[in-house]
């Protein structure tokens, strides 16, 4: 067992873990933050995307041990005082989900896209940038709409 300490959604956490614990297992099983999903478990689908030190990564393909000292944000860390994050609100407004399984990863990736590419995102950019997130329900149309709307809303909420 090894000890890890990190900040998750603003709270300091530490634990003794088996070195082979994946970040997604640590979040779901140790911290009971089950909003981060395991879809494919082979780094294709993006349901497990979280932010580590401000960057979107696939938590099913990252050891928790390598995140020692890092700051992690999950889908649970976005809403504040019962108010949804603008990107979450945009997905709700635009019906950007059907079953919702891919949504946490979509939203974490979407916020990362805005952080890197700004608030004015065209459809082509959004579709290219969502390459690592797979949805099997909606056909992406409303997801793309949601990301564009969320990106604009994030500019207003600053």
């Amino acid at each position: 067992m090894i000890s890890v300490s990190m900040t998750v959604n603003g709270k300091a956490v530490s634990a003794k873990i088996d070195p082979r614990t994946l970040l997604v297992q640590f979040l779901r099983e140790n911290l009971l933050l089950t909003g981060t999903h395991v879809g494919c478990d082979t780094s294709q689908c993006g349901a497990c995307v979280v932010h580590v030190d401000g960057k979107a990564i696939k938590s099913c393909t990252t050891l928790a041990a390598t995140c020692d000292g890092a700051s992690v944000v999950t889908i649970e860390g976005l809403a504040h005082d019962g108010v949804l994050h603008p990107m979450q609100e945009a997905f709700r407004e635009n019906h950007g989900l059907q079953c919702g399984f891919c949504t946490p990863g979509m939203i974490m990736s979407a916020i990362d896209i805005v952080n890197r590419k700004g608030h004015d995102l065209d459809e082509h950019t959004i579709r290219e940038e969502l390459e690592g997130n797979i949805c099997r329900c909606t056909g992406y149309h409303n997801i793309v709409k949601s990301v564009a709307a969320g990106a604009h809303a994030m500019a207003g909420s600053k």
Binding site: S43, G46, V49, K55, A56, I57, K58, T61, T62, S109, D112, I113, R116, E129, E131, G132, N133
Partner: peptide
């Protein structure tokens, strides 16, 4: 290479 999340690692 890969996708944005893979490129971050």
């Amino acid at each position: 290479i890969g996708d944005p999340a893979v490129r971050n690692r």
